[in-house]
Write a protein that binds this DNA or RNA. Sequence first.
DNA 1: GTCTATATCCAGATAGAC
DNA 2: GTCTATCTGGATATAGAC
Lengths: 202, 202
Amino acid sequence: MVDNANTTETQIFDAALRVFHKKGLAGARMQEIADEAGINKSMLHYYFRNKEQLFSQVFFQSFRKFMGSVLPILNEPNTWEEKIPVVIEHYTQVMQGNPHLALFVINELRQNTDGFSSFIKDNPLLNTVFVAQLKQAMQNGEIRTVQPMQIWLTITSNIIFPFITEPMLKMTINFHDSDWDGFIADRKKIIADMLLLYLKNS
Amino acid sequence: MVDNANTTETQIFDAALRVFHKKGLAGARMQEIADEAGINKSMLHYYFRNKEQLFSQVFFQSFRKFMGSVLPILNEPNTWEEKIPVVIEHYTQVMQGNPHLALFVINELRQNTDGFSSFIKDNPLLNTVFVAQLKQAMQNGEIRTVQPMQIWLTITSNIIFPFITEPMLKMTINFHDSDWDGFIADRKKIIADMLLLYLKNS
DNA sequence: GTCTATATCCAGATAGAC
DNA sequence: GTCTATCTGGATATAGAC
């Protein structure tokens, strides 16, 4: 099988992803993407026709990575309680590997709600095994009755928000880089402990 | 005293604030700001010289509203326990009154870390009465020992993140507008309860 | 202070040689 | 497929009349 991982097209795509993630659709420049890819600007148009289409491809891959990558975890055959730290660990690693991903997706989605809504609607988040397990545990009286969406938002807010405000945090307080890693490590445990304690205490 | 609230200059500033909040620095257009203010485009340059300066003024006011407005609350002479729901309520109202504020500040700050750092550093967040009270309670063994920054991030993440992802949430699940208000009302109580439970359970 | 007209620049996109 | 050169539209900014 031929390795197509390093074709011109993928080089452009990877460069575009980096630039769009950092600058957004409005702030990105085709010239900068070309420079980042180390090729000529016309090549962008040759392979992707125009800026809009190049952006679309980057956006949809990013959206899937941000929203879709967690679904398999939520549908695994372990307990809801076991899933929580796994989800936290998952998002931590996604954020660490793609520092601009979350803010990019949130931002572009906010500005172009209409354009993407057809692609995105019917997100199966609320139909996962995880949510079914939570509802069951609530019915059984094992945990407090709360909207599953509140639980989901508690998990994601607590782990994603620190990353998107990371530059601000490092600026306003004196975080050294070594402190940051420890801070995130602590945070993973705190979030899981806090949520479990809340759910089980009725 | 003369009322200067409706001068051309303030009309421009208010219009610029709305447009910059929605579109960001890179996405905003001077023409759109002029249209929004109902005046001629040259007026923007007459009063604010150029786009950069107009943006700066908008940004710094927004930053103060986002970060600075909570400081008085944290320094009031009530207990740390009383402050928590007040802070949550405060941020809820700021978000509801300025739907684009948080994402705007987070975003522009991320893209121009250097440009604003001198203005922003030495944020007195960690020197507030609130943080002093938390440390004291930890020393007394009244609450669990955690970095105050973890507590602060738990409060802000849980209440701000849902607002900045609001369009996404309304898109991916079926939130009707009436549900949303109830969801936020529930959320305020959940966050406070969850955090207090966690802190007091050692 | 407010407007119209215009200068200047820059980014996206295309034409066409190789 | 890849490059250089160029076109075109749009956005910031200025000049200058009133």
